[in-house]
């Protein structure tokens, strides 16, 4: 009898996972449903770990921050406000914020040593885009490809390296005002390019 129950549960699980919406998952997590956290993790681990690896460039640190992020999701799921945005946005914002915090913590001992290597990570590698084909990834890489380099680089330095506008100005040897303008123009262009395709990021 008990065995039948578990077998049925296992068989039904994949179907249920597809049906359960992120918001419902977060509600279940807020009610301390451990399985729900496991499902949310399985859904986003790859994209969030990729993001953290891009920021931290260190597998151990990235995995540690990924763990922190989901532990925070577990503790703060009640803070999620669906009127303000999607769960995916919330997760990425959380992961990026944690990742950049960690990067700054490590900065003193690692930043200088890795600055050179990081230069190349500002560009999206073709090899990477070939490795993982998805609609969302293609849309974003295509949109970024349409931005002039002078607009794209400040955005990437802020997003993946956690640099502020002043730090970007120093890094690129460009006046602060110019950095601010280019960044804003680039982001607005990016939003236009992705506009109407928002559903693709809907998860």
């Amino acid at each position: 009898m008990l065995l039948c129950f578990f077998v049925a549960k296992i068989l039904l699980q994949p179907e249920r996972a597809q049906d359960v919406h992120d918001i419902e998952l977060l509600e279940a997590i807020a009610a301390k449903d451990e399985a729900a956290l496991g499902r949310l993790y399985d859904r986003y681990r790859v994209i969030l770990f990729g993001l953290l690896m891009r920021i931290l460039n260190n597998r151990e640190e990235a995995e540690d921050v990924l763990q922190e992020v989901f532990l925070q999701v577990w503790r703060k799921a009640t803070d999620f406000d669906q009127t303000r945005g999607r769960p995916f946005t919330w997760l990425v914002t959380l992961a990026r914020s944690r990742g950049i915090d960690r990067l700054r913590t490590l900065a003193a001992r690692e930043r200088l040593a890795e600055a050179g290597a990081r230069q190349s990570s500002e560009e999206i590698s073709d090899a990477a885009s070939d490795a993982f084909k998805s609609e969302q990834r293609d849309l974003v890489t295509d949109a970024l490809a349409q931005l002039p380099d002078e607009q794209k680089r400040p955005i990437m330095l802020a997003y993946f390296d956690g640099l502020t506008q002043s730090e970007i100005a120093t890094r690129l040897g460009t006046p602060l005002g110019t950095v601010k303008t280019r960044m804003r123009t680039g982001l607005m262009r990016l939003r236009e390019l992705l506009a109407g395709k928002d559903e693709s990021f809907g998860f």
């Binding site: 399985d42 770990f49 891009r54 763990q67 990425v92 914002t93 969302q136 990834r137």
Partner: peptide
């Protein structure tokens, strides 16, 4: 704007974390 910014996460190469991370999270909670 945060929704647009979140989409930029796709610019990073998707990578698989080690299975231990999942175990650690579930064990921790």
């Amino acid at each position: 704007w945060e929704t647009t910014a979140a989409a930029l996460a796709f610019a990073a190469e998707p990578l698989e974390p080690s299975p231990q991370v999942r175990e650690r999270i579930l064990s921790e909670i």
